[in-house]
Design a protein around this nucleic acid. Structure first.
Length: 884
RNA sequence: GGGAGUUUAGCUCAGUUGGUUUAGAGCAUCUGCCUUACAAGCAGAGGGUCACAGGUUCGACUCCUGUAACUCCCACCA
């Protein structure tokens, strides 16, 4: 697969040349396929995107995280299984299909159910797979053979069976209630599908004349009652006016009647404490058909219900006027008419929360209607317990509170939708309105026959279908046919799954319900952990949306930067649960990182031509020992972070290890001179370290790591299925020596900068230290890294040289123009001042009797060491200052 | 109206049970470099009274109380 070793590598990494090649290779090798075996499983079921969807930044984040977890598990000896799929998304898809038909000049109502469904399936086959194929571009290591759709036959059947089962248990029932009605989609919505938005409205003050008992209007104002409403178009549905019984202004009106303007309906004036006296006029028009509260009031006071709207939000016959016109058009018109006829007293501007349909963005109409419901109380209790007792862990844990709050206040779930695309409700009615719930028509017939004792009936199936979430809550087990084929090998092996990665927005829609279904049907949790991603926002923190046009084209980004850079960019700053502010510069950072690694590869490959069997130098040995330990240290750190799902942090740490420790320090330390050879052992070790880095990075940026691995070692196996190596315990001493070396190099380079010594100009370094043995093994590195042509140990100050102190060692740098003693004096004075004030604070601490009494011995010891170190260093600096 | 969360360098965030050389990283900024792996780069530097006010403690970014700002969730004031 890999290029020939001697082939010239391109200047920069070109993802377009390698991404597809490797994805195809991994697929051909079947690396993403999982079958149950002796290994421990690591299972993730992908949150199935809507068939209507196209890949957006949210999917990118979500699936990148899942792929990182899955690849990390695969490389950790686990049997990794990641299941893809799509959701039929009843409302959203039906809306798309209706739209498509409209473009072709077909109206839905002119089609039979079967004809419509044929179009819907056609649409699904054509567009439904796009989003999954886009995930391949991202590098997602999904087990494609397991791809599941929520309307696959086994899945559809399971949904229906579960409906029947819950109905037989009395958990599912039918009831007439106030529901949220979507006038665009013409269906009921669950409470969760309603988005409340603060909306500017007008509050209309309307004058309702008081009735003399004969239904006559009286034109005098004192004989009227004024109400405030934001919905003047519903006055035709008014069946009472309500005031607070304690409201002195209206006490004389209790039991009297008022006249609804325009239609002259006579309605009673009732009293109820529900009404707030200081809102509006303290008098409320009661419209039981169009408001939840009014409905409750109506029930209590046995009021008539007048529904003045049609399904689609136009005025109904019952409204008497404006029949067939849209509710919002009528609102404007009726206000004018009311004003003209003297019923409108005034208007105020007013802000309130209005419910919008999540799917169609239509203003939701509260409506009384017969629907199917899931009683959630019993299902909720084990589901609440599992999260509270951390049998299921949430990352970040703050979402436990949110979950608890919802579960403790859970309401029944409206599951019927007046749509065709979805699982049809398995309930049949006879002419008398008896309901028979059964898996299929034959079974319903049997039930009906048993009920009637003969065949004197015809059955008609409920026209409605089920809420999408009533199918997606089975996802974690039915993708393994855990319900349709209970106890099969796969469900036993893969369930419970390990991690669910999803957005907090669907914690109620989906997460909570999967937990309920898991306990109800598998008698076990669906997953061990839930990782909540944040919301992807734009640079200014706004949500990405089509209307704002701030949602970047993901595929274009992948084309431009490559999949790895895209994954890097989205992951580098997105801790669990935090919203991420998407900024294209992060992708640039990812691309730059790829180039950095690519160039390191080029460097190492150049060394191939310089190999000899010479011995590694002491400096090489030091560099290698240091890097091996540094690598060990980071590996341990990364392992810990992965365990805690700190993916962003892990990536940052590896990034820094590669760029700073490996490229900036290690490679420079072992780099041979221009014409000099390199020891074979050094090259081999270096390639080994590089491979270790690639292993760590592979879950994050799979393509380039696979490519580089093949470049440095064409015979090696594929990184995709490679296993992480064991971690040794890092040696603290060598790590500290490494840090010291870096500090020395930086300090000397700083002197060069401050003295304005040109990079090409050599410097001469002298060192006054008590650790000359240690420095002897790294002196060549220091010289190489600071471009100095001499390095000597001395016992006193070098005249005319620039003095700088690192730790307890004093360096004298000569070279370039004569030293500016003012500058170096200033430098040392600054450091002196810093040490002095530091000493003051340490001394204060150590001088405090209570501190010495109460603090832990190791803390006191540390403070004493701090003091000793600071004093020693201060002494060195003062000596240097004196000799200036 | 109720609940939760956030507030640390210009930006995005780390900071584990209070003590780790008087707060770390990346990006951005500034200075000097086209040094043959890399200018999409290299080297170096600057930048924070840890939102504010109290309290507990020998010691607070870390614990407690209050205040402010922002974010999210839930909720039937027309």
């Amino acid at each position: 697969m890999a290029n020939d070793k001697n082939e010239l590598l391109s200047k920069n990494f070109e993802p377009q040349q390698v991404d597809d090649k490797w994805y195809k290779h991994w697929l051909d090798q079947g690396y993403f396929k999982s079958v149950p075996d002796g290994r421990e499983p690591y299972t993730i079921v992908m949150p199935p995107p809507n068939v209507t969807g196209v890949l957006h930044m949210g999917h990118c984040l979500n699936n990148t995280i899942q792929d990182i977890l899955i690849r990390h598990a695969r490389m950790s000896g686990k049997n990794a299984c990641w299941v893809p799929g799509t959701d039929h998304a009843s409302i959203a898809t039906e809306a798309k299909v209706v739209g498509m038909l409209r473009e072709r000049g077909i109206i839905k109502s002119s089609l039979s159910r079967d004809e419509f469904l044929a179009y819907a399936w056609e649409w699904k086959e054509k567009y439904g797979g796009i989003i999954l194929s886009q995930l391949k571009k991202l590098g997602c290591s999904l087990d494609w053979d397991r791809t599941t759709f929520t309307m696959d036959q086994h899945y559809y059947d399971s949904v229906v069976k579960i409906f029947v089962d819950l109905h037989s248990k009395g958990v599912i029932y039918r009831g007439k209630r106030m529901i949220n009605w979507d006038v665009k989609a013409l269906t009921a919505l669950s409470d969760e599908e309603v988005i409340r938005k603060e909306t500017n409205q007008k509050l209309y003050y309307l004058r309702y004349a008081l009735s003399d008992g004969e239904g006559m209007t009286n034109e005098e104002d004192q004989d009227a009652i004024i109400i405030a409403t934001v919905r003047p178009e519903t006055i035709m549905g008014d069946t009472a006016i309500c005031v607070n019984p304690n409201d002195e202004r209206y006490k004389h009106l209790h039991g009297k009647y008022a006249i609804v303007p325009l239609i002259n309906r006579r309605i009673p004036i009732i009293a109820d404490e529900y009404v707030t006296m200081d809102f509006g006029t303290g008098a409320l028009k009661v419209t039981p058909a169009h408001d939840q509260n009014d409905y409750a009031l109506g029930q209590k006071h046995k009021l008539e219900v007048v529904d003045c709207f049609n399904d689609d939000g136009t005025m109904s016959e019952a409204a008497q006027i404006y029949v067939g016109e849209d509710r919002f058009a009528v609102r404007k018109k009726i206000a004018i008419e009311l004003e003209e006829k003297g019923f409108l007293v005034k208007t105020d501007s007013y802000k309130s929360e209005v419910g919008y349909s999540e799917r169609t963005d239509a203003v939701v109409e509260p409506r009384l209607s017969m629907q199917w419901w899931v009683s959630t109380e019993k299902l909720a209790s084990p589901a609440l317990k599992a999260v509270m007792e951390e049998e299921i862990k949430f990352y970040p844990p703050k979402y436990r509170n949110l979950y608890r709050h919802w579960m403790e206040n859970i309401k029944d779930w409206c599951i019927s939708r007046q749509l065709w695309w979805g699982q049809r409700i398995p309930a049949w009615f006879d002419e008398a309105g008896n309901i028979f719930v059964a898996e299929n028509e034959a079974a319903a017939q049997q039930k009906a026959k048993a009920h009637h004792g003969d065949n004197s009936f015809t059955l008609k199936q409920d026209e409605d279908c089920l809420d999408t979430w009533f199918s997606s809550w089975l996802w974690p087990f039915e993708v393994f046919r855990g319900y349709s084929n209970p106890g099969n090998e796969e469900i036993n092996y893969y369930y419970p799954t390990q991690t669910l990665v999803t957005a907090p927005e669907i914690i109620f829609f989906w997460v909570a319900r999967m937990v309920m279904a898991g306990y109800e049907y598998m008698e076990a949790k669906p997953f061990d952990a839930v990782y909540f991603t944040g919301i992807v926002r734009d640079k200014q923190g706004r949500k990405m949306s089509k209307s704002l046009g701030n949602s970047p084209d993901l595929l274009a980004l992948i084309d431009l930067y490559g999949a790895d850079a895209t994954r890097f960019g989205i992951m580098i700053a997105s801790p669990a649960g935090n919203d991420i502010l998407f900024d294209e510069t992060a992708l640039e950072q990812g691309r730059n990182f790829n180039n950095k690694m690519w160039n390191a590869l080029k460097l190492v490959q150049m060394w191939e031509d310089k190999v000899t069997d010479i011995q590694a130098t002491a400096e090489d040995e030091f560099a290698m020992r240091w890097f091996a330990n540094r690598l060990a240290e980071v590996k341990a750190e990364v392992a810990e972070q992965m365990k805690q799902f700190k993916l962003s942090e892990a990536l940052k740490v590896i990034y820094s290890l590669v760029w700073n420790d490996f490229c900036s320090w290690y490679l420079e330390w072992v780099k041979p001179g221009m014409e000099a050879p390199i020891a074979a052992t050094v090259l081999e070790k270096t390639k080994g370290y590089y491979t270790e880095l690639l292993l760590l990075l592979h879950p994050f940026i799979p393509f380039i790591t696979e490519e580089i691995q093949k470049q440095i070692s064409p015979e090696s196996g594929d990184l995709c299925i490679a296993q992480f190596t064991e971690t040794i315990t890092a040696d603290k001493t060598i790590l500290q020596q490494g840090v010291l070396l870096q500090q020395v190099i930086s300090a000397l380079r700083d002197v060069r900068n401050k003295q304005q010594i040109k990079p090409k100009e050599k410097i001469q370094v002298s060192l006054q230290t008590t650790e000359s043995d240690m420095y002897r093994q790294i002196s060549d590195i220091i010289q190489k890294q600071t471009n100095s042509d001499s390095f000597e140990f001395v016992t006193e100050k070098i005249a005319g040289a620039f003095t700088t102190v690192v730790g307890k060692d004093t360096f004298y740098v000569a070279g370039g123009e004569p030293t500016d003693s003012g500058l170096q004096k200033e430098n040392l004075e600054k450091e002196k001042a810093h040490l002095m004030s530091f000493l003051v604070s340490v001394n204060k601490k150590l001088g405090n009797e209570k501190f010495v009494q109460n603090a832990k011995p190791e803390v006191i010891e540390l403070e004493q060491k701090k003091r000793a170190d600071a004093e020693e260093k201060l002494k060195i600096i003062e000596e240097n200052l004196q000799s200036m």
